[in-house]
Simulated assay, not measured.
Amino acid sequence: MSDPQDYTVGWICGIELEYVAAQVFLDEEHEGPERVSQNDKNDYTLGKIGKHNVVIAVLPNGEYGLTAAGNVANDMLHSFPNVKIGLMVGIGGGAPSPDRDIRLGDIVVSSPHNGQGSVFQYDFGKEIQGRGYKYTRLLNEPPTVLNTAVAGLKAKYRRHGHQLEEAIKGILEKNPRLQEEYKRPDPYTDRLYQTTHPHPRDKRRVNCSEACGIDPPALVHRPERTEDKDIPKIHYGVIASGNTLMKNAEERDRLARERNVLCFEMEAAGLRKDFPCLVIRGIYYYSDSHKNKEWRGYAAMAAAAYAKGLLCRIVPSRVEAERKITDIISSG
């Protein structure tokens, strides 16, 4: 059995679909922990990525949102007290705009913008007279070692491109039973509807191609991505987190415009001060009423592939030099 003291990287997934994607990108899988905290309710997968020992946990089946994520993080840190860097990896909703060509299957990595932080809770704040709505819950920024690795990886990918698509194909070749759910869908299924064209309320159970149509007036025209462009594309910027699934295109566009939000998700703000981490999300729908489940598996794979590349960029001695997350929390 594995010694919990040996694990310095904590990786949290929101759902089982993301948990599978994280597991298959491990270079080695270890036996389960020899012991955990008495009240720890988490399920763990242990292994190695590059030269780092990684502990992966998932939210309980059927539980979503900020509170559940916070509980998983707290239990992990009690059982694995030597964790020094944290990752929240999974799927989310994109917020495309004229300035950001975000498409299904792309990756969004949390990154500060104009000093406002990289993750905030969009459904918590206060209304101030004459100043509008102020968001008051921000996620603690991840350790510098993670932000430095992101910068290094950006430079590498800009010069040489990335091989994330090839990495995903390689994983699926080794795991053929996952291909149907996790392979990249036909680009034809990636449709961005106009903000003024929501999914009909009386046709919630009817797919979008039938209920909403595929005619040009209903869709946002976007040029095809050329072969010289990396697929998936990686975006760096602000992620909005909340307790409810974002399915409102008008609200999506407002927050993209006012707060430069690139992605919406449901767990990261629950980690707030208790698990400072980098948030990595694969995009599977456009944060509107046209929810697209076809891209969930591929989006989860894309996020996990990026996370693995990031960890392989980090020298183990840099992680060893970091403070334990439990020490950071206890010191306030």
Rank of each mutant, 00 (worst) to 15 (best):
E29D: 02
H30M: 08
H30I: 01
H30G: 00
H30A: 10
E31D: 15
E31H: 14
E31Q: 14
E31C: 12
G32Q: 10
G32L: 07
P33T: 08
E34R: 10
E34D: 10
E34H: 11
R35S: 02
R35N: 02
R35I: 03
R35L: 00
V36K: 00
V36S: 02
V36T: 15
S37V: 07
S37F: 15
Q38E: 07
N39D: 11
N39P: 00
D40K: 03
D40M: 04
D40P: 06
K41Y: 04
K41T: 05
K41Q: 09
K41G: 00
K41M: 06
N42I: 04
N42T: 13
N42H: 07
D43S: 10
D43A: 07
D43G: 05
Y44F: 15
Y44S: 11
Y44T: 11
T45E: 09
T45V: 15
T45A: 15
L46F: 15
L46R: 14
L46D: 12
L46P: 13
G47W: 01
K48S: 02
K48V: 03
I49E: 07
I49R: 10
G50P: 08
G50F: 03
G50Q: 03
G50S: 04
G50Y: 08
K51T: 05
K51P: 04
K51L: 12
K51Y: 11
H52P: 03
H52L: 05
H52Q: 07
H52V: 00
N53Q: 09
N53A: 10
N53R: 12
N53F: 08
V54I: 14
V54L: 13
V55W: 14
I56Y: 08
A57E: 08
A57T: 03
A57G: 11
A57L: 06
A57W: 10
A57Y: 09
A57F: 11
V58L: 01
V58A: 04
V58E: 03
V58Y: 01
V58D: 01
L59C: 14
L59H: 08
L59I: 09
L59W: 13
L59M: 15
L59E: 07
L59Y: 09
L59K: 03
P60E: 11
P60H: 06
N61I: 08
N61D: 09
N61S: 15
G62V: 11
G62Y: 13
G62S: 08
E63N: 05
Y64N: 01
Y64S: 01
Y64K: 02
Y64I: 01
Y64D: 02
G65I: 04
G65M: 01
G65S: 00
G65E: 02
G65F: 02
